[in-house]
Each structure stands twice: as C-alpha cells, then as structure tokens.
C-alpha cells in the first residue's frame, strides 16, 4: 500500500449522503476543497484587516496577489475585462491554494481529478459564451468566421474554429489535471524507491541516496508547477474572457 503511487488519489466518503440514487457524499476531496476555500478566505481577511497605508508583510502578500491577477487580466482583456476580476481572482487563488495544499504529505490533491478541473473549465467557458451572447448577440458568432477567407472555404474553416473553441475547456482541464497527477505520481514513485532500496541493507541505503536527491528536487519542481499551473489557468481564463469582450468583427 505504501508504494502504490495511485493510492493517494482515491476518493473516500467521509459523510455518506444519498439523494435519491445520486451520491452526493462529503468526500475527502470535498473536505480539501472546503479547507482550500477556508484558507484563502482566512488569508485574505486577515491580511486586509489592518488596511494600512504602509502594508504589513501579510498585507503586501495579499496586495501582490491582487496586483498580479489584476495586471494579468488587464493585459489580456483590457480595462473592460476588470469586471471579471472577482471570477479570475477566485479561480486563481482556489487553484493555487488547492495545489499548494496538495504538497503537504498525506493531503489530498483536489486538482488531480479531471472532473474538478473540467468543472472549473466549464465554468470559464460558460461565462465566456453567456457573456459573449449577452453583450454581442449573434455577432459573438463572428468569432468563428475569420475575415479574409475565400468564400468556399468559410464552412470548413468555421467548423474547424468551432471545434477549436469547444476543445478549449478540455485542453484547459487536461493540462491542469495532467500536471498535478503526473507530478504527484512521479514524486511518489521516487519516494517509493527510497523505501524499497533501503530495505536491502547497507548497499541499498547507499543507493537510496540517489532517489532521495531526486525526490527533493522533484518536490521543489512540484511547488513551481503548483504555482505555474494556477497561473496558466488564470491567464488562459483571461484570454478566453477577452474573446467574449472583443470577439472580432
């Protein structure tokens, strides 16, 4: 069990709840989502409580994260995009904290399940589509018809563009999920080598140094990935929102 690298992703029911035939149990995944939200809320509330003109360390951390997301959104979607700031900021903080939580030993990595990342991606794309139609009406469909394409190619290009658009939530979710899953499995496999090698006696313990070093390096890399994937998720959200705000002509 200790060396099974997949075991860490198992969902277990903590409070079994059944609504009809639907299983809506409170699982360990739900528990860590709640913990993530609580941690983000606690961090931001505590950090902004002082509201000093000269920020404390905690407050400047909150301000940096605000600045970071605000600049990202403004670059990608312009000043108009700032109305989506709450969405993007929540997504970024949620993914970031969930990923960082996953770095604790014995903690569950929420983002290593495709359904979670897919739900987040669908939220983004749903926002893009609904807002795009609300604001531009049918002109939003112009996103799929590039200008300057010869007439006989328009149907083909349009279909390809639509498929390309539909593939966005999938690629968005696969990317986040695959990164978290692969990273944690690799980490676990190398850590497992340390255990099984050191069972071989003195030579084994000597040999176990190599995978141990690898595990340490991978842990550092995983912290980078945890941040980077939250960033990538937020950046792509911004770019897709930009499509909803400025869908070409």
């Amino acid at each position: 069990m200790a060396t099974d690298p997949i075991h860490q992703f198992q969902i277990s029911r903590i409070v079994p709840i059944e609504v009809g035939s639907l299983d809506v149990s409170f699982t360990n995944s739900s528990l860590f989502m709640v913990a993530t939200v609580a941690a983000v809320t606690l961090f931001l509330v505590l950090a902004t409580r002082g509201r000093g003109l000269v920020p404390t360390r905690l407050q400047s951390m909150a301000e940096i994260s605000y600045e970071f997301v605000a600049n990202m959104l403004r670059d990608a979607a312009g000043t108009e995009g700032m109305r989506f700031f709450p969405l993007v900021f929540s997504l970024f903080m949620f993914v970031l904290f969930a990923n960082l939580f996953g770095m604790f030993p014995y903690f569950f990595t929420v983002m290593s399940h495709l359904i979670v990342t897919f739900a987040l991606a669908m939220l983004v794309i749903g926002t893009v589509v609904i807002y795009g139609f609300m604001r531009h009406g049918l002109k939003f469909l112009g996103l799929f018809v590039p200008h300057g394409v010869p007439g006989y190619l328009i149907p083909l290009v349009t279909v390809i563009e639509i498929i390309s658009f539909l593939s966005r939530p999938i690629s968005l979710s696969i990317r986040l999920f695959a990164n978290m899953l692969a990273g944690h499995i690799t980490l676990k496999v190398f850590a497992g080598f340390v255990v099984s090698l050191s069972a071989l006696g003195a030579v084994g313990i000597g040999g176990a140094i190599l995978p141990l070093a690898m595990t340490i390096a991978l842990t550092a890399l995983e912290f980078l990935v945890a941040f980077l994937q939250a960033y990538v998720f937020a950046v792509l959200t911004c770019m897709y929102l930009n499509d909803a705000i400025h869908p070409g002509h």
Binding site: D75, A76, I170, S171, R175
Partner: peptide
C-alpha cells in the same frame, strides 16, 4: 505584452503538457 507567450516557452515539462493537451483536445 500578454506575458503568456513570452513567459511560457522555456518551461520544458509544462510546455510539453500544454502543447499536447491542446492537440489532443482538438
């Protein structure tokens, strides 16, 4: 600039996942 394209390139593993997920998703 949108930092994404300039900043994203050198990340080896992340970049691989990114490109392949784009392709596979299509």
């Amino acid at each position: 600039p949108s930092e994404e394209k300039a900043g994203e390139r050198p990340q080896g593993w992340g970049f691989v996942v990114r490109v392949s997920s784009d392709f596979v998703a299509g």
